[in-house]
Nucleic acid binder design. Structure first.
Length: 506
RNA sequence: GCCGCGUUGGUCAAUCGGUUAAGACGCCUCCCUUUCACGGAGGAAUGACGAGUUCGACUCUCGUACGUGGUACCA
């Protein structure tokens, strides 16, 4: 049997960290078993449809390197992969359930449902359900006689189809992560299967599609655990229980401070992204920053996601996608939720930047520079800059500050780092240095360093006293790699020019 | 309220009945470096609580507490 997993988001907005992790685990599991990973769009709520969200989700998966084998954009033998295009299929099965006595028509209007809820609401039962206690008091094909039901149906009275929950059953199933889960059926409510607009609810759609698409392992967030018994029942009533996928309910990703599910708002509040990529809500024009745009490498992003709720058991923490596929084991997924730690996320990105070949970073950095109007003379020079500064870049955007002075003359100088200790002796040293460097034929870090040191000795000034001013001249600030390496890459002309620049200011 | 699920340092986590309870992030100290980093050495810091089972419990059982999810014609 071929392993088939699916990621089934609803296209309602930006793709959340937790969503990408669900996709990632599904992908890793499928690939580990030479299986297929499917993207299915769960757009059964027409009120929540958001323009562009589908393409955006696919783009995010592509960027992460976990592209689906089948999706609305790839097509495959189980198309369509968009639930809104499978409307008729669900209806057929809903009717089948009515015929077999496991579901029924309900004609209650939203107002009547509201009325029911307020009527039966008590302190000890703040949210009454449409269940065995009230169903016979409502307007449905169970409480009405056959003629009444027929009449309503013939008059095109809006109706939903509800699942008839048995009164006294213990519903058990085995979750791959949590083991045996058990629920009592009398606590469940008669969930709507088919809505009045003819669309299925998630409950019906997920079962029908997982069956039709031959899904073997279903990964989803822990928030689905309470409705799992509904799905188990549906698999059984539809006569498919032998084909039911194995369930795996993933732990939640929690906010760093306090408790609760990590939300978009938490990211805004605490200053980190929650979405994989930039997302602009087309209705409100509200923009949310993504991991990609804030400067994460996709390798680092999936690495950090993998470590949220899963651990290899090894001491290794940095994993390539291939290593993740190899190491991933569902048994090693945690039960408890994990708080998101942005500091650690940045550390992982930093590790990835450090270990990346400059060539691998070239295009990304080049695009970054283009976007920031930093002109580079050549790719080769940029390559050298990247390899010189990458170990001090935690986010890709750090390449701007760490590399810009190689391409643009600093316009501001941290004079405070120089001025307090500045004196004529140092002024003379640098004046002398300019002429010395002008006459230098060989230009390399070691050569400049030798010249610099010899001259310092001649002037009887400690070299340490002179390096900082030199750095400020070349860089503008107190950061960057060895000054002599900077000078080497800059070339003699620019180096000399920059010394003169600061001398003019001081 | 009810139901489900969970609980090892600040955070991520190893351990699958017997360990001085790993490792990582972050934090602190020191070394390297007269920049910022990187790297290296060290440090502080952990089994929610209470019963049981057992020769022996972080590991198994039960209870309590706490947290979290669900309780929609949303997914």
């Amino acid at each position: 049997m071929t392993v088939r997993t699916r990621f089934a988001p609803s296209p309602t907005g930006g793709l959340h960290l937790g969503g990408v992790r669900t996709a990632l685990f599904s992908y890793l599991f499928a690939k580990k078993h030479q299986g297929k990973f499917i993207l299915r769009i769960e757009d059964t709520d027409q009120n929540r449809f958001v323009e562009g969200a589908e393409e955006y989700i696919l783009n995010c998966l592509d960027w992460c390197g976990i592209s689906p084998d089948e999706s609305p954009f790839h097509q495959g033998e189980y198309a369509p992969y968009r639930q809104s295009e499978r409307k008729e299929i669900y209806k057929k099965y809903a009717l089948q359930l009515v015929e077999t006595g496991h579901a029924y028509y309900a004609f209650d209007t939203p107002a009547e449902l509201e009325e029911m809820r307020s009527k039966y609401k008590t302190d000890s039962n703040p949210s009454p359900q449409y269940d065995l206690h009230v169903r016979m008091k409502m307007k449905n094909s169970l409480s009405l006689n056959a003629e009444e039901t027929q009449t309503l149906l013939q008059n095109n009275t809006p109706y939903v189809i509800r699942l008839l929950i048995p009164s006294n059953r213990t519903i058990q199933f085995k979750d791959l992560i949590r083991g045996e889960i058990s629920n009592e059926s009398h606590l469940l409510d008669d969930k709507v299967l088919l809505k009045a607009d003819g669309m299925p609810t998630y409950h019906l759609a997920v079962v029908v599609d997982d069956y039709l698409m031959k899904i073997t392992h279903a990964f989803r967030g822990e928030e689905w655990l309470p409705s799992a018994p509904i799905h188990i029942l549906l698999w059984e009533y539809l006569g498919w229980q032998n084909d039911m996928p194995q369930w795996a309910h993933l732990p939640l990703i929690l906010k760093p401070d306090g408790n609760g599910k990590l939300s978009k708002r938490d990211g805004e509040r605490l200053g980190f992204p929650v979405f994989a990529m930039n997302w602009t809500n087309p209705e409100t024009s509200e923009k949310s920053i993504g991991f990609k745009e804030i400067g994460f490498l996709p390798e680092a992003f999936i690495n950090l996601l993998a470590l949220l709720g899963w651990s290899s058991g090894l001491e290794q923490e940095i994993f390539s996608k291939e290593e993740l596929i190899e190491q991933f084991a569902i048994e090693k997924v945690h039960k408890g939720g994990a708080k998101f730690d942005y500091e650690k996320a940045k550390w992982i990105n930093h590790e990835w930047i450090k270990k990346s070949e400059p060539k691998h970073l070239l295009n990304t950095v080049k695009n970054l520079y283009d976007a920031n109007q930093i002109k580079i003379e050549s790719e080769n020079k940029l390559l050298e800059v990247i390899s010189l500064v990458k170990e001090r870049c935690h986010l890709l955007n750090d390449f701007i500050m760490q590399g810009i002075y190689f391409f643009q003359t600093p316009t501001t100088f941290d004079v405070e780092a120089v001025k307090p200790k500045w004196n004529d002796a140092k002024l003379h040293f640098f004046q002398q240095l300019i002429s010395t460097l002008k006459n230098t034929e060989e230009w390399s870090a070691t050569h400049v360093e030798t010249q610099f040191k010899n001259l310092a000795a001649d002037h009887n000034i400690k070299i340490g006293e002179l390096q900082m001013p030199f750095r400020i001249m070349l860089v503008g600030g107190k950061y960057g790699p060895s000054v002599f390496h900077i000078a080497e890459l800059l070339g003699s002309e620019k180096t000399i020019q920059r010394i003169q620049n600061l001398l003019n200011v001081l």
